[in-house]
């Protein structure tokens, strides 16, 4: 019982970790205040769920979830190319709403508020990840690979250009870098990982509906990124673990689940407020949001 609960928490940590480090890539490293991350997560979850329900194999659904989200990431990057700061934040926020409205209303495809139940358990090379422990191993491996890839990207010459864009876009352009292309790549890659996180979520819960992808879902991920500190992957990992575990004691005090849900959101919102007011750099942040 205890171990099943622990495995559940570890899977959540894994999924949130992928979401948070990919958001870190666009917000922390590139300086694009992207509030559309949950939309990419939703796109990944829906693509993966719909393909899996059509009977396609796991690796195909999983990859296509990432690629589909990446496509939308490019689309968003191209359309918001000229926007900066709070206007970019608002445009990406509007994007989240549009995707949410589509998942809710395109009932022919997504079944709207009824959601998509019965997503099969993933299987790879003839092995089915039917119990939660094997699924945890899968999530862990994918989270680790995602972490390594994003670390690699941030340390590469490409990553340095991204940080240069964050610090001074005009100067970077003067140095002959195509900042538009670089920003699009950053947002696309970030969206790719959000998409695969969505795919893992869909496979894990086996049921998705639009309510899993509302704006309030963005709060924990954003809180992780800010609390961990911008442009710090180490901080992101620590913050993910802390923030996923933090509201859990509420369960043991014996509150009903109708209280726990909102209480969790309140804790995240309060933490985000406190850190923004008291310690805007977060735990290990190297820079402050501008």
């Amino acid at each position: 019982m205890i171990s099943a609960y622990l495995i559940h928490l570890l899977i959540l940590i894994g999924i949130y970790l992928i979401l948070a480090i990919s958001l870190q890539l666009s917000v922390g490293f590139t300086g694009l205040l992207n509030l559309g991350h949950i939309a990419f997560y939703a796109i990944g979850a829906y693509i993966s769920a719909l393909l899996a329900l059509a009977g396609l194999p796991f690796w195909f659904c999983f990859l296509l979830a990432g690629i589909g989200a990446m496509f939308f990431g490019f689309l968003l990057a191209i359309s918001t190319n000229k926007l900066k700061g709070d206007y970019l934040a608002l445009a990406t926020l509007a994007f989240t709403f549009v995707i949410y409205a589509i998942t809710l209303n395109w009932t022919g495809l997504t079944r709207g508020p009824l959601g998509l139940p019965g997503i099969p358990k993933p299987s790879l090379f003839g092995f089915t990840f039917s119990d939660n422990f094997s699924f945890l191993v899968l999530v862990f491996v994918i989270a680790l690979i995602s972490y390594l890839i994003i670390t690699r990207i941030t340390k590469s010459p490409f990553g340095r250009v991204l940080e240069a864009i964050r610090d001074d876009e005009l100067a970077t352009r003067v140095l002959g870098k195509n900042t538009f292309k670089m920003k699009s790549y950053a947002l696309g890659i970030s969206a790719f990982f959000a998409g695969i996180a969505g795919s893992l979520y869909a496979y894990y819960i086996t049921f998705i509906d639009p309510s899993s992808f509302t704006l309030s879902q963005l709060i924990p991920v954003l809180a992780i990124v800010i609390i961990g500190g911008l442009a710090s992957l180490k901080g992101t990992i620590i913050a993910t673990i802390i923030l996923v575990l933090l509201p859990e004691p509420l369960r043991f005090v014996g509150f009903p689940s109708s209280i726990i849900g909102p209480a969790r959101q309140m804790i995240y919102a309060l933490l985000l407020l406190l850190i923004l007011i008291k310690k805007p750099r977060g735990l290990y942040g190297r820079i402050e949001l501008e």
Partner: peptide, 15 residues
């Protein structure tokens, strides 16, 4: 910055 204020107001809304 304005962006910080925007995020703060967003956190307040969810709170």
């Amino acid at each position: 910055s304005k962006v910080i204020l925007l995020m703060t107001s967003f956190a307040l809304l969810i709170f």
